[in-house]
Design a protein around this nucleic acid. Structure first.
Length: 443
RNA sequence: GUGAGUGUAGCUCAGUGGUAGAGCUCCGGAUUGUGGUUCCGGCUGUCGCGGGUUCGAUCCCCGUCACUCACCCCA
């Protein structure tokens, strides 16, 4: 019997869970400080809720749940595992619009599923840590979201991350100005997004081979997108304005970018923002700003997001502005594990003290002593078997438990408890009532 | 969905055409009230699965599955 978890899924042993919980607690804490409220939604959504929201490739990667019974044979699906947390949020907003505040700010940390092929930092089940603000088109939203995400990463110990920023309207303007048919924009964006991977010539060739543009035009377009790493945000803005050739919507996008940079300078994201005309992002629901968080030592991104002012409208009929950012828990953990970025307390042990059992007659008293120490606020383990004391102590040591208590016949007659500190080897007798205080003081 | 690599004890890995080893872990013990060092002893494997070549395959060939990496796409 094969006992591996299903492909792309993982078990989390206690050490893993402690690390994950540490990261999630920092994320939740920071998000709450920014006024975001928690939300949870079901793992399973009706399939039509999800279909058509993520683009062609996204639809393909949705985990479908076959209908039960006869229909199972047809391969027909009516339910699916959620693919991200953004679309479920849009559904929730559409469903509860009247009950939710005018500006609904929520964070959500839950698993999502993608029928992808696993590789480094990429799994079929993974946690997203989303923050989104619903109900405002103000760019204050962008600045706050970027500030919150930057603060999370800083608190976790990341120093060398950058936030790539771009705008769908600016992208659209550039493409139109260059002569790409509107219907082909999505395809062109995905191709241009590969600029940092395949280089200008590669992208030019792909644009031409996909018949999106003639080769000469393609080369020109690529030229526009290839900013060169040294370009400052101001340089990029200037160039965008020129290349837009008066395209109205595109120019509006550029102004928004300018404002986002300016406002973000007043947030924790200050100095992190790098305007990048080649950033496209595959999800089809983005309508305005788009961003992606990058660190040098990971090929993929740590997180991404953007503005999606039309997604809620797909459920509700009327438009509701929305913008959000998502951090990938696993991506963060991959980097933090590789760099050993966890504070020592995260590696800490389950119990602070282990109560040994002297013999069969004192089992109940051991339980009683453990109870007293727990009442005093300690994390306490009780050795379950009446093994030799040496074996019990050895076990405590192997588990990294700092203290053991021993109550043998001598101690019992004196009404005391022997407390041994396994990291120093010191042992001393003390009244039962003093044990908890002693351990707390020396632990 | 495409391509490449790997698949041997719980873990990390070695190995040979004649049905397998090391280190670590684990378990037991070293004058029965005390761990970390040391010493002694011990356990475990259908050598991923199925088929083929061969007198014989863990080792060669084919298939298959799993994992890893890359592409696609993405957190």
């Amino acid at each position: 019997m094969n006992t591996n978890p299903a492909r792309g899924m993982r078990d989390f042993l206690p050490d893993d869970v402690r690390r994950r919980q540490y990261v999630m607690s920092v994320i939740a804490d920071v998000y709450q400080r920014y006024g975001f409220e928690p939300l949870e939604t079901p793992a399973v959504e009706n399939i039509e809720t999800l279909m058509g929201k993520y683009g062609e490739e996204g639809d393909r990667l949705i985990f479908r749940i076959l209908k039960r019974g006869e229909e199972g044979k047809t391969g027909e699906a009516d339910l699916a595992l959620r693919y991200d947390l953004t679309v479920p949020l849009a559904r929730v907003v559409a469903e509860y619009r009247e009950r939710l505040p005018k500006f609904f700010k929520r964070y959500q940390v839950q698993p999502v599923w993608r029928a992808d092929r696993p590789q480094k930092g990429r799994f079929r089940e993974f946690y997203q840590c989303d923050v989104d603000a619903i109900g405002s088109t103000s760019l204050v939203v962008e600045a706050e979201l970027l500030g919150a995400a930057a603060e999370v990463l800083e608190r976790l110990g990341f120093s060398a991350f950058t936030i790539r920023l771009n705008h769908r309207k600016a992208l659209g303007g550039l493409l139109e100005a260059a002569g790409v048919a509107v219907a082909k924009h999505g395809e062109a964006l995905i191709t241009l997004d590969k600029l940092d991977k395949v280089g200008p010539d590669g992208v030019t060739a792909e644009l031409a081979s996909r018949a999106l543009l003639a080769e000469a035009d393609a080369a020109n377009l690529v030229q526009l997108f290839a900013t060169g790493g040294a370009a400052t945000n101001d340089d990029v803005l200037r160039r965008l304005r020129t290349d837009m050739k008066g395209h109205e919507a595109g120019l509006r996008g550029v102004s928004e970018l300018e404002d986002i940079v300016r406002l973000s300078d007043a947030s924790r994201a200050r100095g992190r923002i790098r305007l990048d005309p080649s950033l496209a992002r595959g999800l089809s629901y983005y309508t305005g700003s788009i961003f992606e968080i990058a660190v040098p030592d990971l090929t993929g991104s740590l997180g991404g997001g953007g503005r999606y002012d039309e997604l809620v409208g797909m459920f509700l009929g009327s438009q509701v502005a929305a913008c959000g950012i998502s951090l990938g828990l696993e991506r963060i953990l991959v980097v933090m594990n590789a760099r050993g970025m966890f504070p020592p307390v995260v590696g800490a042990t389950a119990a602070q003290v282990m109560v040994t059992i002297w013999n069969a007659d004192t089992v109940a008293d051991a339980i009683r002593l453990a109870g007293e120490l727990r009442t005093a606020g300690l994390r306490v383990d009780v050795y379950p078997d009446t093994d030799k004391i040496g074996k019990q102590v050895k076990y405590a040591d192997s588990r990294g438990i700092r203290f053991v208590t021993i109550v043998g016949t001598d101690e019992t007659t004196r009404g005391e408890v022997a407390v041994k500190n396994l990291s120093t080897g010191e042992q001393q007798l003390m009244p039962r009532a003093d044990v908890a205080t002693f351990i707390r003081k020396h632990g």
